[in-house]
Amino acid sequence: MTKKLVLITGAAGFIGHHLLDYLLQKTDWNFVLLDRLDLSGNLDRVRDIPSYEVDKGRIRFEWHDLKAPVNESLAKRLGNPHYILHLAASSHVDRSIEDPALFAMDNVVGTVNIMNFARNCSNLEKFVNFSTDEVFGPAPEGHAHKEDEPHRPSNPYSASKSGQEAFGYAFFITYGLPVVTTHTMNNFGIRQHPEKLLPKTIRSVLNGTPMPIFAKLNKKKRLEAVGSRYWINCWNTSSAVYFLLKHGKPGESYNIIGFDEFTNLEIAERIAKIIGKKLIPKFVDFHAVRPGHDRRYALDGTKLKKMGWKPEISFDKSLHDTVKWYLDPKNQHWLND
């Protein structure tokens, strides 16, 4: 029996390499990794996967920037995958504010190019289109967005992801492409880019330097922390994607969420407690620093939960294990800017 072939775009990125790690452990499938190895893509992540030396015979790598179409030569090298997991994207809000056109090219045009390739894959069973909670815009207190709610993107990054989703649905309707869309929330885990909250906080606490925390003026004209998010470990996200490869329905979208909501300050304080050192918060006005910053994101995970999926690892255990991994001297190079 022929083994499944999986194409992962953005496979050298943070979530992409965790998804590869998970699927290497859970399946006997073969993988083609597509990445342009820029700011977020780093093959050291793939080589750091514990089973890499054993499983590297199941992995092939192809360099490509999806702003360009997949030409005939590359298409032959990619093969005829059974699953395409499309994670390649530009994802940093601040950089999207500086260069919105780049994000439109990477996230919208790039998606169209890989979907045009996918249209010709006769073996294709699922195309998983990775989106974000941010397409829905801010969530009022007490509300969590469901999959079918309207998009209200607040910044160029979330607008580009909304466009990515729109093309995914259009390709499903027009060409019958078996697109399954996911919305994920704040993912964390090992080997994350140093600019992200967890590694940045760990570095700040270890060095005894102030940690910037977004804040707003309260009624007493004092700054207080804002920025509430639901947090999920990449292992749980990967588990949900594997579940959707089996049970997801083309044309549908699914919220992949953690069930633990914290402000950035609360996350930073938990990290400091695990390390055993003091956090030095530095409150900054979030609107002055980041126009288009949303105070709170929230997704409703009922749909996926009713289908039978649940996180494999608790938030507390995954946060503890992640911080301890970074504290190991052999892993501390992942904290460097």
Rank of each mutant, 00 (worst) to 15 (best):
H287A: 09
S238V: 08
A272P: 11
G301A: 10
L327K: 10
F286H: 07
V226P: 02
P291G: 10
V289K: 06
F283N: 05
S239I: 13
K317I: 05
G308A: 07
I274D: 00
H287S: 08
R270E: 14
W235K: 14
D294N: 04
A240N: 10
L299D: 09
I280W: 00
I271R: 07
F286S: 04
E312C: 13
Y297E: 00
K324D: 00
H287K: 15
F262E: 12
F259I: 08
K324H: 10
D328V: 01
D285M: 09
F283W: 04
N236I: 05
W309Y: 14
D300F: 09
N233H: 15
G308F: 06
D300Y: 06
I280N: 02
K273Y: 01
K324S: 07
D321A: 05
T263Y: 05
A268F: 07
D316C: 07
W235Q: 12
G227M: 05
D321S: 12
P250G: 05
I313M: 13
H320C: 03
F259Y: 15
S253W: 01
F243M: 15
W231R: 08
F286N: 02
G292D: 13
K310D: 09
A298R: 02
L244V: 09
F243S: 11
W235F: 14
F283G: 05
H247G: 02
A298N: 04
T237C: 13
I267W: 11
Y326S: 10
S238L: 06
V241P: 03
P329Y: 02
V289P: 01
F315D: 13
G276P: 09
Y254K: 13
K303W: 08
I280V: 08
S314V: 05
A268S: 15
S228Q: 01
I256N: 07
G248E: 02
H247N: 15
H247C: 05
G301W: 04
N233M: 01
H247D: 13
D285N: 14
A268G: 08
G301K: 10
N255E: 02
I280M: 12
I275R: 06
C234V: 15
P311S: 10
D294P: 00
N255M: 07
F315K: 07
F243V: 14
I275P: 12
E261S: 09
L279R: 11
D321M: 04
T322D: 04
D285E: 11
K306V: 14
W231V: 04
T322Y: 03
S314P: 08
R290F: 06
K317Q: 14
I280K: 12
D294Y: 00
